[in-house]
Design a protein around this nucleic acid. Structure first.
Lengths: 152, 152
DNA sequence: TGCACAAGGACCGAGCATCGGACTATTTTG
DNA sequence: CAAAATAGTCCGATGCTCGGTCCTTGTGCA
């Protein structure tokens, strides 16, 4: 994370972060253009919500944030009408956070941006290298996603 | 940024973010283990500082944060002895933020972590794909790094 | 050469995000 | 069934974030 050679040859961390941020900015801007100006922290949690609904603790673990933080972010997403809480049929202690129709709009606005950016990257890198990039990242997820490694 | 298929097949944004966060966590943990427990936002700004010194506005642009935010983060990094401000010889209005010897320690703690993680990734992906990944990310930086595109 | 305007930063203060700790409701365990 | 574990919420303190404003130094133009 801390490398002396900042602009010259950034470390792997920045190398990953820079395109990530680019993508994120693009999506946030599109959302804003469509009248959804949710803050970044809300968007970051929102994107982790599974279509089938997610539990708070799941989201917290995936986002590496304390439960209360995610809790208050979900409060806001709920107040804005993007998500709703319901009782998990599997476990009455838990709440299932799921995406409302209004929340779906966010996804529908984001998807084309994602595709456009990917297309731009493909134009810059070429189809083969773009594919390799996605494959490598997907493979990397197996060893780096905290959510995927339940008990390590 | 917002894709319905969260755990199944995350979008490109998450795909980039997940390994980034993994790397970052590893570095932060190592720093903490060595008695440096600076907060994440400080580390994120710190890593952007060029060895020759950086200006505040540069850092703000690269990190996509307002100047005042970066200013207060630099205040803290300075108070902790990791960086120092000096007058930019090129322009007396500007301050040059540069890394102190104590700040160098952060880098020296981080580098081996970076290398270890990269080695682990290489073990998982293979040498060729790891190299391809780095190349692709570096190439991507040309079109995604806000700092690299001065006036676009 | 002088003056208006731009650019780099610092200061102040309001608002709110973050997160530890304690608490309640449910499930699991022995 | 009690005891322990687990999901989430509530409360409150700390302090981060960032808009507005001001000061200083550089730059452009007549």
């Amino acid at each position: 994370m801390d490398d002396a050679s900042a602009p010259a040859d950034p470390n792997l961390g920045l190398l990953l972060y820079i395109p990530y941020r680019y993508l994120e900015s693009g999506v946030m801007e599109a959302l804003r253009a469509h009248g959804h100006d949710l803050p970044l922290n809300q968007a970051r949690v929102f994107q982790r919500i599974s279509p089938e609904g997610s539990r708070l603790a799941e989201l917290a673990e995936a986002a590496q944030l304390p439960k209360q933080t995610v809790g208050s972010i979900i409060d806001q997403l709920e107040a804005a009408g993007y998500v709703q809480r319901s009782i998990d049929p599997q476990d009455a202690r838990a709440r299932l956070v799921s995406i409302t129709p209004r929340g779906q709009q966010l996804i529908e606005i984001s998807l084309p941006v994602l595709h456009d950016v990917e297309a731009a990257w493909r134009a810059h890198l070429g189809a083969r290298r773009t594919l390799q990039l996605k494959e490598a990242l997907t493979a990397l997820r197996e060893i780096t996603d905290p959510f995927l490694r339940p008990k390590a």
